[in-house]
Nucleic acid binder design. Sequence first.
DNA 1: AAGTGGTCTAGACCACGCA
DNA 2: GCGTGGTCTAGACCACTTA
Lengths: 264, 264
Amino acid sequence: MRPTSVYEQIADDLRTKIADGTLQPGAQLPTESELREQYGVSSRSTVRQGLMVLVNEGLIVPKRPKGYFVRRWQPMVYRPQSEFGKRPPEVDIFTHLINSDGSGRSAKQEIEVAIVQPPSAVQERLRTDEADSVALRRRTRFLDDKPYNLNDSYAPLDLVQGSEWMSPADVARGTNLVLAELGHELVQALDEIYIRMPRPEEVRRLDLGPGTPVAEHIVTTFDPDGTPVQVTVNVVPGDRHVIVYERRKPDGAEPQPRIPWGAP
Amino acid sequence: MRPTSVYEQIADDLRTKIADGTLQPGAQLPTESELREQYGVSSRSTVRQGLMVLVNEGLIVPKRPKGYFVRRWQPMVYRPQSEFGKRPPEVDIFTHLINSDGSGRSAKQEIEVAIVQPPSAVQERLRTDEADSVALRRRTRFLDDKPYNLNDSYAPLDLVQGSEWMSPADVARGTNLVLAELGHELVQALDEIYIRMPRPEEVRRLDLGPGTPVAEHIVTTFDPDGTPVQVTVNVVPGDRHVIVYERRKPDGAEPQPRIPWGAP
DNA sequence: AAGTGGTCTAGACCACGCA
DNA sequence: GCGTGGTCTAGACCACTTA
């Protein structure tokens, strides 16, 4: 018998109801006043404290002035490997990936290009000097006009300057092909995935709800010489993505499965 | 000039100091009373509300009765691909991976074995019937006696019953090899990575601090016939892991890079 | 206009862990 | 014991959105 606090009780009860389906995604929770009565709590703060637990777990979201609602969760597939896959060269890779899944969704991206001092994480991976500026191609991707992910690519300035890589417009055949034409085919990649809570700027740019963690997916790509050519930092919201990889044993069969199931 | 609330100001100021290094990892923050004075706030709750923002972002952690401290973050490399890599058959794969990195850390795991009704996510991936029970091999992995990750493997009951797969002890040559000996070599895998906040049970089992998101890494492995043989659900805390994949273009060179850098 | 949640006040008592 | 944060009370006024 360990006496757990009142606000934890409230949080636990509601969490259970969400987990077992008593409260379905999209359903409205009792209001703060109703919960105060139900649990015989005399102060609003205590009830609020319980609700905040669930808000920070990403399970519910307050919609003023209606009340609290169970959050919906609809992750889309995010495939780092598609970069190296076969694709028609006519369209941008992001647009292609979306349009080819038959869902009829609208995909677009905002592109900015700049010359910047890279963050130290990028500088280390690109193996540039501390003082060196690098080229930045920053993309914010939208699906049905909702932000989908952030995609910042960095490349050595002398390598891409003047090329189409630095054009602030969709590059139909893909920027990787541009790099190949410049003599640096991308043949190898190292993916790192960090799991963390978003920074305020990411919350703003991605319009993230509270309690939504993100994956920071850093791709370092190499040319045949083993020289890092490009570092891409992707920020992908947890509530809208499943990251998917297919693997096979060396000399194994071709991969075949598409994902025929939903979220866990 | 948009007037932002007081608690947000407090959170923003402290967050900035953490980001720019004014407050280093491990450093102590001002106490609630001190912050109340600094910001001319007359109520404790307001200060606490600001601090809670950072707690839920995983940036700080309260240590009663000392105060709040900036959190440390030391992710270790987590490599899903090592499963298919070469390794000496004498030791368990987890132990091997740890011991082979020259860090001299202690690795151990607690193993439980059971026969259970699988969660629906597992049932769908294993393509078993709703009524079917399956075998569960549940491992909790520790590094230097601190929980590292959770690893629940499921397999069809008729396939593994009576085999070493269901032994609640380390299997030196690896359970994948056991499955191969049973006629189901694992040659192909599908990795799915979901990013979310942990469930209370995971917080308990992994001893997670507040504001620590997790990755749920689900591996479905297939035999040469394309039959799913095993589904493994890994829960890996974001504050202790970087997930790493190496990729190369089909017919490209062998991967070579080890990670020579720290977290972003 | 009404009702919701968002912010803040001004206290109270308690639990914990260190000195 | 002392100071820290953890919990809870009993209010107040405000901001927002929809009916």
